[in-house]
Amino acid sequence: MEKKRFVPRSFLIEVLVLAGIFTLVQYLIVSGLLNEYYQINLSSMCINIILAVSLNLINGFTGQLSLGHAGFMAVGAYAAVVVTTIYSQPFILGLLAACLAAGLAGLIIGVPTLRLKGDYLAIATLGFGEIIRVILQNIDFIGGPAGILGIPRYSTWPWLFGLTIFTIVIIVNLINSSYGRAIISVREDEVASELMGINTTNYKVLAFVIGALFAGLAGALYAHYFYIIKPSTFNFLKSFDILVMVVLGGLGSTTGAVIAAIFVTMLTAALQTFPAIRMVLYAVTLVVVMVYRPQGLMGNKEWGRRTWGRIWGEKNEPLANK
């Protein structure tokens, strides 16, 4: 039990598969085989995965219904663009600024609002998200309602892919730890959790800040892919979009969030051919899925190393999981 163990085979396989995907796509892009349309969707997919996985930390694992994720995305996007475009600093500084600013916004909003529960929290976060948007609209320095144009396209495939994996790894690591268990206990029964000696407020704020921080990161990647940002992009409908991915995937399942983010991006792309009826079909899909599978695609199950391990015939159980 306590003997030093070798790196499990499934971990190596994961790394190999990811490296394979990365190299393949990179090759397709460089060789020009992947046209702009596919590239855009692939980039949106990465950004959506980051958004869904980070919102799932707040809504799915901590059980705190937040409807303001687009607000944090906006804070990140604007912070990064101010650094890279207005002050002409390198991309990496922009990304750091985005994370910092969005995390800080998460802290400022989270501390007072996380006292609220359920629907009340949902509408308070919705309100804050909208307030962020209105404030951005009224700052002339960052272009007011028209936003900022001519942002350099720094979000290349290596950045997008790398940061998507980074987000997933950080959040999975957090969840499979004592911190994660405390966070999940808040979702399961806040009163019992508090009485087991867990400072529930701290853990709620922690999850909220980390979630906001990654939303900011996604915002920065978004801004540096699509050349332009304006406040109206980050309205509450955008927050709903992210929430939809999380709920479709299954609250409390990172695997589900990733799959749903990919699915929703592809659905949106596929429906672009029918612009008139696109949103109608989207809405119908949403209602039908909820009516027939309200727990979402994955429920709160994961496909983890265990599943892969079983597929590859591996015996040893990962340490951190049950």
Partner: peptide, 26 residues
Amino acid sequence: LRNSSRIAALITAIGVSLFLEYFTLF
């Protein structure tokens, strides 16, 4: 969805809202 989670019902309401808006638009 009466016996499902509140959030599932909320998402459904959002879906219905989008449907009414965009069906009218269409």
